[in-house]
């Protein structure tokens, strides 16, 4: 029986994981993805340009301008309408209007086809009114995964994600925020007409990709100072908060740190790097 085999494989996991699970000091912490993007004006201007271009061309399958992915079926939310049939299989995760020239890899989430999350995104992107949004989500959420749905007006032009006055009925317009929170704290947010994001997926994908790059830089660097310089050059958006180096994992666990930038990096040394204000942590050995 394959399930039994997997059960026996899981039986052999790291002893530390087994002990860790039984700790008594758990306190739920919600991971919140905090975007550090440029002022909204630039994005709005860029979005407007893209919309004009797309409307002028009339038919666009996949337009890429300066790193911007534009949907194959449309380039503007104006062309979306709230459909009674929310399960149109022709729509895939490739067809979402993501406009994010600064962090395409970070914010362009990839959701598995046919998943509840993908259906959720489909509804959020197309709902023209608050009523349509709520009824669409209520119909799709057969397992009770959604804990909160909200639509809010954007009030502060300098803070991209700051939400304002709730909108409880009527049309959902550009520049509003549609936010859906699941019972496990994962949050999906659509800045209407601009960006769709998931707190969970963006942090997860970001951490994985960034971690791989850090490991690569660590293998290439000769000294701690050299590694820090390489990270500084790569990390142009300043995601990295702290870099710590240890002689080995034992020292890491004991907190015995190597701090001299002239320290020559050797095989077996252990890096502990804190990213995104502690939301992502990378631990790896050279």
């Amino acid at each position: 029986m394959k399930a039994e085999k997997l059960f026996l494989l899981i039986n052999e996991i790291d002893d530390r994981l087994i002990s860790d699970a039984e700790r008594t000091d758990y306190s739920p912490v919600e991971i919140e993805y905090v975007s550090r993007r440029s002022p909204i004006k630039e994005i709005i201007a860029f979005a407007a340009c893209a919309a004009v271009l797309i409307i002028g061309v009339f038919t666009v399958v996949k337009l890429r301008i300066g790193g911007i992915d534009t949907p194959s079926d449309s380039g503007s939310r104006l062309e979306y309408s709230c459909s009674d049939d929310m399960s149109d299989s022709s729509e895939t995760s490739e067809n979402i209007p993501v406009i994010d020239e600064e962090f395409p890899d970070v914010t362009q989430i990839k959701l598995p086809a046919g998943s509840f999350e993908e259906k959720l995104r489909y509804i959020m992107l197309r709902a023209a009114t608050v009523e349509a949004l709520e009824s669409g989500i209520a119909e799709a959420d057969t397992d009770g995964l959604v804990s909160e749905v909200s639509v809010t007006k954007k009030t502060d032009k300098t803070e991209y994600f700051k939400t304002g006055e709730p909108v409880t009925e009527g049309a959902i317009k550009d520049d509003m925020f549609v936010t859906v929170t699941l019972v496990d704290g994962v949050r999906f947010r659509y800045h209407v007409g601009y960006v769709f994001e998931s707190s969970e997926q963006s942090v997860y994908d970001f951490g994985r990709e960034f971690n791989e790059q850090l490991e690569k830089l660590a293998r290439e660097a000769e000294t701690l100072g050299g590694f820090k310089a390489a990270v500084a050059e790569y990390d142009e958006y300043k995601w990295t908060d702290e870099i710590h180096l240890y002689q080995n994992r034992d020292d890491f666990e004991k907190g015995i740190e190597l701090t001299d930038d002239n320290t020559v990096l050797e095989k077996g040394m252990c890096f502990y790097i804190i990213l995104q204000s502690g939301n992502v942590k990378a631990v790896f050995e050279i």
Partner: peptide
């Protein structure tokens, strides 16, 4: 949360 829930369920 995910890690501990998984281990408590499938190990313990």
């Amino acid at each position: 949360l995910h890690r501990r829930a998984f281990v408590l369920r499938y190990w313990h």
